[in-house]
């Protein structure tokens, strides 16, 4: 076992790992941060997306030892300092961008990465950016709407409803 230290949501943490310990397992089992979900084993579904040094990565496809010392952010670190929902989280609630909630952490983390790169994405840009995040509940409509709303765009006319 090898002790791996990193910064997670602004906090210095460490946990024992094997070579094969994935970042997702390090977070879920080592740190008991179970908001990061594992929905597949082929790096496709995106439920496990976290940020490593500011970039979105699939935490089920990164070894913990490979990101020793990194600055990691997970869904547990997305709320405001006072505990209230952050802008993206609030937009997901306001626009019903989640149903069962399982893909949601990855969606929010990908959305945050997108908005950091591209503060006012078009509908097409949002859909394209979310290519690596699968949702089975929402048909994506309200996720796309929530991400655009979180960017400050008026979404009231996006679809007649």
């Amino acid at each position: 076992m090898t002790k791996v230290s990193m910064t997670v949501n602004g906090r210095a943490v460490s946990a024992e790992t094997e070579g094969r310990t994935l970042l997702s397992a390090y977070l879920r089992e080592g740190l008991r941060l179970t908001g990061t979900h594992v929905g597949c084993d082929t790096s496709q579904c995106g439920a496990c997306v976290v940020h490593v040094d500011g970039k979105p990565v699939k935490s089920c496809t990164v070894f913990a030892q490979d990101v020793a010392g990194a600055d990691v952010r997970t869904i547990e670190g997305m709320a405001n300092a006072d505990g209230s929902l952050g802008v993206i989280q609030q937009a997901f609630q306001d626009h019903h961008g989640l149903q069962c909630g399982f893909c949601t952490p990855g969606m929010v983390m990908s959305a945050a990465a997108l908005l950091a790169e591209n503060p006012k994405p078009t509908e097409h840009e949002v859909r394209h950016y979310l290519e690596g995040n699968i949702c089975r509940c929402t048909g994506y409509h309200n996720i796309v709407k929530a991400v655009m709303a979180a960017s400050g765009q008026d979404v009231s006319a996006l679809a007649a409803e």
Binding site: G46, V49, V52, V57, K58, S110, L114, E131, G132, N133
Partner: peptide, 9 residues
Amino acid sequence: IGDPAVRSK
């Protein structure tokens, strides 16, 4: 290639 998270790594 892939998706944004894949492209990060």
